[in-house]
């Protein structure tokens, strides 16, 4: 038996199927027979949910995520990059990407700019407008959800809940508030927390990366993670929408 949901499902179906006729015909109690019937339905639901679990285990996914993050963190530290990443929406044929300016004082990418298809690229007219172009956890996660480009705040809320709560099960719930050029994302009981490490200071935590990528895609504009702070209920992520 592959997972606990399937085991639970089989046990409930077998127990329910055995008890229902006994309780109905021998004991003569309709409510108890109905309760046994309900365990069959619960068992079927549990077994079907077990079948719907991803084939790659969470442990294997975590191993791959950590490997990628540690390699990227090593690169960022070696280059001494301290700028916050700018998340760009996808362009035709390309995933959304994040640009990390090599110089903190250089200009920021503008709306409509397509991410260069290279690791180190120039993104602006000035000589110092050089950046590192990386694919973030948020960019890859968009493969499993369709986001209407320019869909606005409702699209961010719906897509983030579908992705983070429904598909990835990384938090209990998410609410999104948009005021002018600020997007505030409240994540209730997140499983991935912010850590004060180089990688997170630059690109944000994986949760913030997903939120920023979705926000950028839904607003069809570049965005930047401003802050991540712990609250009583979970984490608050502030995202700035760039012009």
């Amino acid at each position: 038996m592959r997972n606990p949901y399937q085991r639970l499902g089989v046990v409930l179906v077998v127990v329910g199927a055995a008890l229902t006729p006994v309780l109905y015909f021998v004991v003569g109690s309709v409510p108890l027979a109905a309760l046994a019937l309900s365990t069959i339905i619960l068992g079927l639901v549990s077994a079907m949910l077990g079948n719907a679990r991803p084939e790659i285990t969470p442990e294997a996914s975590q191993m791959m995520l950590k490997t990628g993050m540690e390699n990227l963190a090593a690169l960022l530290e070696e280059l001494g990059l301290r700028s916050r990443a700018v998340y760009l929406p996808s362009s035709p044929g390309n995933r959304p990407r994040a640009l990390i300016p090599l110089d903190e004082d250089s200009s920021t990418p503008r709306t409509g700019q397509t991410p260069p298809d290279r690791l180190i690229a120039r993104y602006g007219p000035n000589l110092e407008d050089m950046c590192l172009v990386v694919t973030t956890p948020g960019a890859v996660s968009l493969d499993s959800v369709d986001i209407a480009s320019g869909g606005g705040p409702d699209e961010i809320d719906g897509a983030l809940n579908h992705l983070v709560v429904g598909i990835m099960d990384l938090a209990d719930s998410i609410s999104v508030h948009v005021v002018r050029d600020r997007v505030t994302v409240e994540v209730v009981k997140p499983k991935l927390k912010y850590e004060n490490i180089w990688f997170y200071r630059c690109l944000g935590s994986p949760m913030a990366s997903i939120a920023a990528t979705v926000a950028s895609q839904a607003m069809a504009r570049p965005v930047r993670i401003v802050s991540e702070e712990e609250t009583k209920r979970g984490t608050r992520i502030e995202i700035e929408v760039l012009p």
Partner: peptide
Amino acid sequence: MRVYNSFITVLALAFAGITA
């Protein structure tokens, strides 16, 4: 898999409530 656990728990409570 908290969302699965919560779904099964809510369903079990609903079934118990309906039976009662």
